[in-house]
Nucleic acid binder design. Structure first.
Lengths: 143, 143
DNA sequence: CAACATCTGCTTGTATACGAACAATTCTGC
DNA sequence: GCAGAATTGTTCGTATACAAGCAGATGTTG
């Protein structure tokens, strides 16, 4: 090593949690796309939440899927175009648009469920079951 | 609870690692933006990697910062516009564009360093030091 | 009741991320 | 040496994410 002396790396990008969160997220998105055809993780999250909760206002749906109002508007629109959700004005509050699953959306969730769970398995395949549990717990503390 | 019987939630979105990775990443990006002015985490990653490695080809830089060629092109262009990097043709391989920090880029990295480390601290503030170490280790196994 | 604050959905612009495609350049194997 | 494969950078289109801003509707307070 006849190179000039390098200052020790003060940041060490590869060890930064933020950087690695991004990489883990990217990896998960790629795996999800491999398993679940025609739906992004974000779109599937919307289907899942509507399946769980029933009709929600668009803004509430965004809050329950960690998306801001601009983002949820786009996602709902694309799902509506796919025929998987429907939206309508709320009779009780003129500000709200209610979003609900269509039959096709219900079916898409149910078909996609096994695929999404397979994607989940592949995402964590480098960890033991105990590690998975620890990771989930710590991750939940981070958000 | 006189509601009709609900089927148990087969997916439990809030417990899905993929969903929580996205939320953790989103949280980190928001914290980073609070601490580091004028640079996104991704842009800072580029500065950090160039500081660490010196001049790199654009494609190599993208690979070392987990960005594909379309994304790194945009990020480099925006950093170039800010005067923080310069790029030039490689004399030895006509396909390559070499990207390097400018003096201003060097300075931006050094100024941003403490801010980025503060962002990191805030991102993990819900965890004990031991938990942080475990999380980092498990996260590294995921990517 | 009215003024003000808050909420909702929408629009716009910027940044990231990726797939597909392409042209030019370099590498590889015969 | 040459054909084919691989690499690089660029372009384009789609999806997500967010900040800022806005109009209209609803909630809160005096």
């Amino acid at each position: 090593m006849s190179k000039e002396m390098k200052k020790p790396d003060p940041y060490q990008l590869s060890h930064q949690i933020g950087y690695n969160l991004r990489r883990a997220n990217q990896r998960h998105v790629a795996i999800f796309s491999k398993h679940v055809e025609g739906l992004t993780p974000t779109q599937f999250a919307v289907l899942a939440r509507l399946w769980e909760c029933g009709a929600l206002s668009q803004n509430k749906l965004g809050r329950l899927t960690a998306m801001d109002s601009a983002t949820i508007k786009g996602v709902v629109e694309r799902l509506r175009t796919k025929g998987l959700v429907q939206s309508s004005a709320d009779q009780n509050d003129q500000r709200l648009r209610l979003v609900d699953l269509t039959q096709a959306g219900r079916a898409a969730f149910e078909v996609g469920l096994d695929q999404a769970l397979a994607a989940r398995l592949e995402t964590v395949e480098g960890l033991t079951p105990e590690e998975i549990e620890v990771f989930e717990t710590l991750l939940a503390k981070l958000i």
